[in-house]
């Protein structure tokens, strides 16, 4: 139980770390969306694990499934916006996506 928990916690933290690191560093808009996906995957695993630890497996898993659905919608909208940005400006670099500032 303890080792299992440690492994899961480590995995979750890794995914969160990779996701956040990606959001801080990547410049391609598609990669930003992918980083976001990695981040959410960490949270989904955490939810399932939390269900297991507390003995509420059903609750944890149904939560996870719902999050997957919602997350997919967000990803779709994000990608759609990215495609539109590429069409309008010809670039996917987030550095160019900073006309609104100050």
């Amino acid at each position: 139980m303890t080792t299992e928990f440690t492994i899961i916690a480590g995995g979750v933290l890794c995914l969160l770390g990779v996701g956040l690191y990606g959001l801080l560093t990547v410049r391609n808009l598609f990669q930003v969306i992918i980083a976001l996906q990695i981040l959410v995957k960490g949270a989904i695993i955490a939810l399932v694990a939390a269900g297991k630890i507390s003995g509420q497996i059903n609750l944890g898993q149904s939560l996870a499934v719902t999050v997957i659905v919602a997350d997919t919608i967000v990803a779709v909208i994000g990608l759609a916006l990215a495609v539109q940005v590429k069409r309008l400006t010809g670039s996917l670099d987030v550095k160019n996506l900073a006309t609104l500032r100050r």
């Binding site: 949270a43 939810l47 694990a49």
Partner: peptide, 9 residues
């Protein structure tokens, strides 16, 4: 979501 997971756990 992470907060929710912690509370659930």
């Amino acid at each position: 979501l992470m907060g929710i997971a912690l509370v659930l756990a």
